[in-house]
């Protein structure tokens, strides 16, 4: 475990990686457990919900119901992976909804105009997202203004760009090129939805990278204390920059998923409010909003929980507004749990 020589302040905290641990400390104390208590709770809650829903509506636990649920989870989970990294570094990106808007309108319009095939449409969308993420990253890494201000600005700027492309209209007659990522038959192989599989693979890679490589641990160091990280030799700016670029790239890919799940027409309100849904998934997943701690696994579970609640409320025939109530409670409980953990730690 000589990946890193960092000990952020409060380095006794479970997330800190240290090569200078005293002899009495075992390996188990160096890395956080593979599955944190919050994630365990989430897994149990989701499992219970699925069980209850299966008993309440027999149709819930069937492929026809689970596949669309998993597919609907993917845009938020995918962007959530990037958002988790951003929030771990102590930042935030509220422009992701606008990035999805710009990437989806450019991709949709190009497909309508030129009949762009899938293998080109996806890279195009990802590239657009990456460019916008780079704009965010450069402004935040070199601008010395807090990320929420910068991305709140770019949220509006990107939205303006998107509206210009929409040009007071909707994009109509979008071909079914992206059905590969959809909830229909074209979107699955052996019953497994492609969009979900891709999201899980990317999440697993991100999870491994963040947890088991020195580069990954640097993101936590930046979020724990950027100055200490810099003094310890972490390229803080490069880390911050890359977090926003990755988020942009993932938002670009998520735009393809959004298009695949939408209809053959695209309206200018695409992606609006998406940033809040993503941040909700990240927070419910146990990532500390103040940075330095969090995991991609939690975020994916958070996204899955939110979608399970939405689907459950609809399938049970409950009033739609109850999903807002549940999501609100989850966020507050999750943040409360985070606070409690921190207090317990500082007391000990």
């Amino acid at each position: 475990m000589s990946n890193s020589t960092l000990t952020p302040p409060g380095g006794a905290g479970s997330t800190a990686v240290s090569g200078r641990d005293g002899p009495g400390r075992g390996r188990g104390r160096v890395l956080p457990p593979p599955v944190t208590s919050q994630e365990t709770v989430l897994i149990v809650v989701i499992a219970l919900l699925w069980l209850v829903l299966s008993l309440a509506t027999p149709a819930f636990f069937t492929a026809g119901s689970i596949v669309p649920l998993l597919v609907a989870t993917t845009p938020i989970a995918l962007i959530g992976i990037g958002m988790t990294i951003v929030i771990i570094t102590g930042g935030i990106d509220v422009s992701v909804g606008s990035i999805v808007m710009v990437a989806s309108v450019i991709t949709a319009q190009t497909m309508v105009d030129t009949g762009l095939p899938l293998v080109l449409a996806v890279p195009l969308s990802i590239a657009v997202g990456g460019v916008l993420g780079l704009v965010n990253g450069v402004l935040i890494a070199y601008g010395r203004v807090h990320a929420i201000i910068i991305t709140f600005g770019t949220l509006n700027l990107f939205r303006f760009v998107g509206l210009q492309i929409f040009g007071s209209s909707t994009v109509e007659g979008i071909p079914r090129t992206l059905n590969f990522f959809g909830r229909g038959d074209a979107g699955r192989t052996l019953g497994i939805p492609h969009a979900f599989l891709i999201t899980i693979v990317i999440a697993a890679l991100a999870w491994y990278y963040l947890r088991h490589t020195a580069g990954g641990r640097h993101f936590y160091a930046v979020g724990g204390d950027a100055n200490a990280a810099r003094l310890a030799g972490v390229a803080v700016r490069a880390r911050v920059l890359s977090a926003y670029v990755v988020t942009g790239l993932l938002a670009g890919l998520a735009a393809c998923f959004v298009l695949a799940q939408g209809t053959s027409s695209l309206a200018a309100n695409v992606g609006s409010g998406l940033e809040l849904a993503v941040i909700a998934a990240v927070v419910i997943g146990g990532t500390s909003i103040t940075g330095g701690r969090g995991s991609v696994l939690g975020t994916v579970l958070g996204a899955l929980l939110v979608q399970t609640v939405a689907t459950g409320v609809t399938q049970l025939g409950w009033p739609t507004q109850l999903s807002s109530l549940f999501v609100g409670v989850f966020i507050i409980v999750a943040v409360g749990a985070d606070l409690l953990r921190r207090r317990t730690r500082s007391d000990s």
Partner: peptide
């Protein structure tokens, strides 16, 4: 679209 899917399933 997702809600319509859920309604058909339930």
């Amino acid at each position: 679209t997702q809600m319509a899917t859920d309604l058909m399933n339930s």
